[in-house]
Structures are given as C-alpha cells and as structure tokens.
Design a protein around this nucleic acid. Structure first.
Lengths: 184, 184
DNA sequence: GTCTATAGAAGGATAGAC
DNA sequence: GTCTATCCTTCTATAGAC
C-alpha cells in the first residue's frame, strides 16, 4: 500500500505562513521562507496552495475565522445592542494592545497591493465590508441613525490604524456615544 | 570639456519616483521602472540617490513638503485655533476625496516595511509625530484637554484610512467638537 | 511496487546596485 | 549594459512508509 499522507500538514504550512505574512508583510516573505518555517518540502506547499496568492488568501481567511471566533465569544457576555457595540470595540482594542500587533491584516494587505483585485484582496475587502455592516446593524438596533454608524466606524478605523495608547480612548468614546443614545 | 549636467534632473527623477511609489507602493516599484518613467540613465539615478531607500526617503520628504505647503495655505484663511483645527481636518478630507488617493503615504510606507527603522521609516514616523503634535497644540490653544486631542487624532487617523465617503463625516464631527468647546 | 515526503536544482523573470 | 541575488514556480532525484 501507499504511504499515508501526514494529517494536519496544510494547517502546519498555513500557520507558519500566517505568522510570517502578518509579522513581515506578504510581499517581504518569500515562499522559501514559508517552506523553511513549516519544515516541509516545496512540493507539499504547492500541492496545498497552488500559488502565493492562494496562500495569502488562505492566510486572510484563517485570520478572519480567528477574529470572528474571538468576537463571537466576547459578544456572548454582552446583552443588547449597546453593550454588544461596546464589547465589539473593546475586543478590537484588546487586539490592538496585544504585543506584536502590527496593524489590521486586511487593511495591511490592501495597502501592500493597492488597486489589486485578486483572491486575497477580495477576501480582505469582503471582511471589511462585513465588519462595517455588523457595526451598522448594531447601531441600527440601538436606534441610532446612519451618522452615528459612520462615526463609530470612523473610530474603529482610527483604532485599527492608531497607536495602542489610543485604544482606551476609542473604547471610552464609543461607550459614551452608546450611553448618550441609550439615555436620550 | 565635460558635458554640463542638466539642471532639474534630480527633481525629474524624484517626481517620477514619487508618482510611482505612491500609486503602486514602494516595494512594488523597481528602480528600472523609475528610470523608464524619468527617461534617464541608471547611472544618473544612482548618482543622485545612492540607494532605493534614499530615494524613498526623498519621496516622503517631498510628500511632506507638499502637504505642509497645502496645509499652510489653507490655514492662512483661518483665524483662531478652532477654525484652524476645522480647516486642517477639512484639508485632509479634501486630499482623501481627491481622485487617485491611495491612503496616507507615510502610513503606507510603515505598513509596507513593518518594524523597519531606516531613513524613510524615520521620515514617516517623524511626520506623523509632528502632525499629531500640531493637532494637540491647536486643541490646547482652544482650551481643550488631552482627551479631546486624542479624540481628534483618532478621527484624523480614521479619516486617513477610511473610504472617501467618511471624509465629510469626519469634518462635521470635528466641527461639532470645536463648536461645543467654543460655546462651553 | 506504490505512494508521499524532502531536498535541491533549474527556469525565467526581476530585483537593486554598479 | 552588466553583475549578482532573489523572486515564484516547476521539475528531478532520493529517502521512507505502506
């Protein structure tokens, strides 16, 4: 019989690639580096990911899955649109403050490949659009208008880009906005 | 006799490089592309800019000079810290709405070269620090506290990152913040 | 023998630097 | 123009598990 394929190889490669891509940027990391970090042969890498773009897309999809899991878990403790909104922003702030944070993976990719519309670019755009929709939905549930949704999203954008010392400022501000809305 | 060096060559090369760097990203643009766009010889390029990093640094410095000129000209029409702050944010919003806007050149470079501390990275960090200081100074003149300065900077960060449709939202918000501060 | 794995060379393009 | 180095990708060669 033939040799049994090692299970979990795809995850090993993807995890190694994700760490490198996020830390150093997709453009700066070569496929050889990924192979070395994953401790596998080039053949295996290209069998699971036919191109670097597909590997980058998988990296962003993995990132999205992890973030959605973190957000969902945080939101389980929140009751109602107001607390949910604050919790959501608080979860982002926690990520920003985490050591090794190097910016939003999706925004970073779109910056590294401006004007691109390949698979990873579409994954990134889709995530950002869905994320904004999620914020807008919570604001709408809370009874806020489009202006409030736009302002919260502006804070969220600034939170992603800005330095970690701005994390608390963003959370407090959104908290204030939500409370004012809840009282009025 | 030796041939007289063509005056303005450095500017020609730099302008061509700046356009390409901003549009496609520093990493994506090769020196050959710059040479082709500038319609000059490779030796001439390396005579004025000994490395790609120095060319990128000059590109960011040029960008800074242009922005400071635009901001200074806009601020000449504003009287007092409040109107100045609104004008400053409005000028950024105008830039964001301009066709061909691909994000903040300084933030983009730092994203393309994460963790780097070479010459262009230092230029970028310096500009962002000075820009934040400028905002904080205007807020201070207006009688605002550190929290207000942080919040305005958060909006400015979001304004740079976000889509053009957020430009007006940011300007209106800052206007509102300034007016509330002026009345109270 | 058959299949999967790694290691490495090679192709072809392009990078920065001289 | 040329040099060297590296890029992504493909292919070959070889070792190991069934």
């Amino acid at each position: 019989m033939a040799r049994t394929p090692v299970p979990g190889t795809r995850d090993t490669v993807l995890t190694a690639a994700a760490g490198l891509f996020y830390r150093y940027g997709v453009r700066a990391v070569g496929m050889a580096q990924v192979v070395e970090a994953a401790a596998c042969g080039k053949n295996l890498l290209y069998r699971h990911f036919p191109s670097k773009a597909s590997l980058a897309a998988a990296y962003l999809r993995l990132y999205r899955t992890e973030r959605e899991r973190s957000v969902a878990e945080a939101l389980r403790w929140a009751d109602g649109p107001g607390p949910k909104l604050v919790t959501l922003v608080g979860e982002i702030a926690e990520m920003v403050r985490r050591p090794g944070y190097r910016g939003c993976a999706f925004r970073n990719y779109l910056t590294e490949f401006p004007g691109e519309n390949d698979e990873p670019a579409r994954v990134a755009k889709q995530y950002l659009a869905d994320s904004r929709t999620q914020v807008a939905a919570l604001v709408s549930e809370l009874g806020g208008d489009d202006l409030m949704a736009d302002r919260v999203w502006l804070v969220v954008d600034g939170l992603h880009a800005g330095p970690p010392d701005q994390a608390r400022v963003a959370v407090d501000w959104v908290t204030e906005i939500v409370q004012r809305r809840s009282i009025a």
